[in-house]
Simulated scan of single mutants.
Amino acid sequence: MRSRHVSIVIRRGPEVVYAFASDPGNLPRWAAGLASSTVTWDGDTLYADSPMGRVAFTFAADNMLGVLDHDVTLPDGTVVHNPMRVIRHPDGAEVVFTLRQLGLTDDEFDRDAAMVAADLARLTGLLEST
């Protein structure tokens, strides 16, 4: 199984990036690969429609380290762990998402990496325009 780190530098402080990205209400604005609809809560579990169908997900607890790891439960019950970090960068913050191939073909893996990159670009656009 291969892993790929998809990252982007955002010209905003890491605290600002983390606060925005960790707010589930903001997910439909930038994370189209995860949430294409309003996010609903049931305790610590969040639900949203996604390109894969209705998914459930949980995020790491709020923290000062920039950890945005999240587990996504797909419609078929498969749980995918997604490591994600917001780290300090000389130009602001760098967001790093670790993507794992997990049985995907090379083409599917490339497609998923492109979707993550597009999501991170949307996040950058939102944060750098304010």
Rank of each mutant, 00 (worst) to 15 (best):
M1P: 00
H5Q: 13
S7L: 15
S7N: 15
I10D: 15
I10E: 15
G13V: 01
G13T: 09
V16S: 08
V16P: 02
V17R: 04
Y18F: 07
A19K: 03
F20N: 03
S22W: 00
S22D: 03
D23T: 07
D23R: 02
N26S: 11
P28F: 11
W30Q: 07
A31Y: 12
A32T: 14
G33Y: 04
L34W: 01
S36F: 04
S36I: 13
S36R: 14
T38I: 02
W41E: 05
D42A: 00
T45A: 04
T45N: 01
A48V: 12
D49N: 13
S50P: 02
S50Q: 02
G53F: 09
R54E: 05
A60C: 13
D62N: 12
N63Y: 06
N63D: 09
M64C: 11
V67I: 08
H70N: 11
V72Y: 08
T73S: 09
T73R: 12
G77I: 03
H81P: 06
P83K: 05
P83V: 06
M84A: 12
V86Y: 14
V86L: 14
R88V: 11
H89A: 09
H89Q: 09
P90I: 11
P90L: 10
P90E: 12
D91K: 14
A93H: 04
V96P: 02
G103F: 12
L104Q: 11
T105H: 07
D106E: 15
D106V: 14
D107H: 12
E108R: 14
D110V: 05
R111L: 12
D112P: 06
A114W: 02
V116C: 03
V116L: 09
A118R: 06
D119M: 01
D119T: 01
D119I: 01
A121I: 00
A121M: 02
R122W: 03
G125M: 06
L126P: 08
S129G: 03
